[in-house]
Nucleic acid binder design. Structure first.
Lengths: 345, 345
DNA sequence: CTGTTAGCGCATTCAC
DNA sequence: GTGAATGCGCTAACAG
């Protein structure tokens, strides 16, 4: 709370350089219309005095207000619910910084609907964060938005071929590999079959996780063979049926990797067959359910991508791109968290 | 970048409530000297209009400047070097927000020196972040600082009995438990001995990790017995000697847990005896070394506490406490990261 | 108890 | 090319 006015301002720089405030500002913000000689002089003074712009003052003077739209999948998926909740928190925080978030939820399995929704956003926002579907229509909608001068970031699920400015999310191939290593190691030399369940291979993140997982298991754990992939549509009752069938038909089943949601169904199936805690079971997304499964030893590891981080990161990235403020890349990398029962947050 | 002046300001609130700007401000910031009736009226209008304070304007008007001091251990410890580097980055960022960090490094194994350093800080800073030593002299020094009105947060290593305002760091007992579970699971039913190496049991974090680790292994993996703890002083050549002796004298050695630094020495010892990749080896702190060891299969898992997060979190906490801005606890929780070779950042 | 007023540091007109 | 002047929204004296 020091009140020492020691802080160097643009005024100081201007005076010291023998120019006006306006000129100093032009140099500092790289605006045109300053003779190179003058500019050099200003830059020298900036360096010599160690001038640092005052972020609060700049924002206040600029007085701009930013409007962002977050487009998330509708439906009962727990992770998406968490994400939506975190987006709400982020919105609360941003509102104090002159930025506002609208949250839209659209059917994730309908590329046409998603594309149409996106196109309807043109001109209405400064930036858009979207949990994307890797589909030509969606890609083209994203490109239309960027062509209209909007900043678009993909969230959780990427469309690399689009013109999105940034992807906020994890490397899902690596996430799948991580699951593979965990199951491989936890199986501890046992020989047998491993069940693999995805929500739908149409989702890029699911496909990537499956790829990474299979890669590691087949490459490095030859004693474990991966069963043909099953599709659950992320529904508990489907995962339960799938796993019950496996338990019935695959005598040497030693592990399960669930790429998507529906872990509750798996736990139910394991309980019904009295095999909980015996099979190695790895899944995604830390929820009340999976946390409980970890604590009870039903699940052995949960791979997680923090919804709060992703929401805040998307907001920071949008804000930085719109306002021209700097971004610290390292801080924006989303990590693949591994949780076992002892390092639960 | 909408220029719509739609934003509601305190002026609007004041006008609508039929009071002056100053009164509205007093209500909003909980300052005394407003009749309850008036205050209620203002709060109503705030709610009705959905007024959100403008953070930038508030900071600018307040015009305070904050001075923080970060006190880190000197010495060659890699993690502490990373932390120092991150503190420098954080300082860079803070300087734009009217806050300044001085970084001090003192001998970590000398409580007297640390305490003296801390006492020398009285009155010179608004806040202090310190990698503390749990020692009566240090505790009392911390309490002296807080008594002098300074905000103190402990970083990485806590002194729970002190009056520090906040601890920025992980739960080290949980970190030790996590190591225990990983080694227990990775050992995959093998029977044998597990080596345990700490830097020094005088460091609270080392002691806590050791405790958590032993707790899990003895409680849940009876087929693994923990060897008597060895002290390395975090030095490579000491860890190397320790591990070479273990490899010589303990025929059934199946795992190693290194609580502190010195993983390079362990890798060297394992290589010398041709046992790398065969023993389960878990340690702390992601560095260039440990990253390489993971990739080469020498280490099986690295438990990490992100230096960047901790540095930024400490800064945010100090700033929030000094300026009275709100803090989002959830965002300030430091996680226990588990890295295997597939989820390296 | 309440109101008036003067900036905070910078971006941005509009003159020159 | 450059400078002078105005105001962003809020806080903190100071007056009443």
């Amino acid at each position: 709370m020091s009140r020492v006015s020691s802080r160097i301002t643009l005024q100081d720089v201007a005076r010291e350089a023998g120019v006006s405030l306006a000129t100093a500002d032009r140099v500092l913000n790289g605006r045109a219309g300053v003779r190179e000689a003058t500019a050099g002089r200003v830059r020298d003074v900036v360096a010599r005095l160690g001038y640092r712009p005052n972020a609060a003052a700049a924002r206040l003077a600029r007085g701009e207000t930013y409007r962002f739209c977050f487009v998330l999948p509708s439906g009962p998926n727990v992770f998406m619910r968490q994400l939506a909740e975190q987006v709400t928190n982020t919105a609360e925080w941003l509102s104090t910084h002159n930025a506002f978030i609208d949250l839209l939820r659209v059917d994730v399995f309908a590329p046409e609907a998603l594309a149409a929704t996106l196109e309807g956003l043109i001109g209405r926002y400064d930036g858009v964060a979207v949990v994307a579907l890797d589909h030509p229509r969606v890609r083209s909608a994203i490109d239309d938005l960027t062509a209209a001068g909007m900043v678009v970031v993909t969230l959780v699920s990427d469309v690399p071929s689009s013109h999105r400015r940034h992807y906020v999310g994890v490397d899902n191939i690596a996430a799948g590999r991580t699951a593979g290593t965990l199951i491989g190691r936890f199986a501890g030399g046992r020989q047998g079959a491993v069940g693999l369940i995805v929500g739908t291979p149409a989702l890029r993140d699911h496909a990537e996780r499956q790829f990474g997982f299979t890669q590691v298991l087949s490459g490095e754990y030859p004693s474990l063979k991966v069963l043909p992939v099953q599709e659950s549509l992320d529904e508990d009752h489907r995962t339960q049926e799938i796993v019950e069938q496996m338990l019935r038909e695959v005598p040497d089943l030693v592990g399960l990797y669930n790429v998507g949601a529906g872990n509750g169904g798996i736990a139910a199936a394991l309980a019904a067959f009295g095999r909980a805690g015996e099979l190695v079971f790895v899944g995604h997304d830390l929820t009340d359910d999976t946390r409980r499964f970890l604590l009870r030893g039903v699940m052995d590891a949960v791979i997680n991508q923090d919804a709060g981080h992703q929401s805040r990161s998307a907001a920071r990235v949008l804000l930085a791109h719109c306002s021209g403020e700097p971004l610290f890349d390292e801080q924006e990398r989303i990590r693949i968290d591994i949780f076992v029962r002892d390092n639960l947050p």
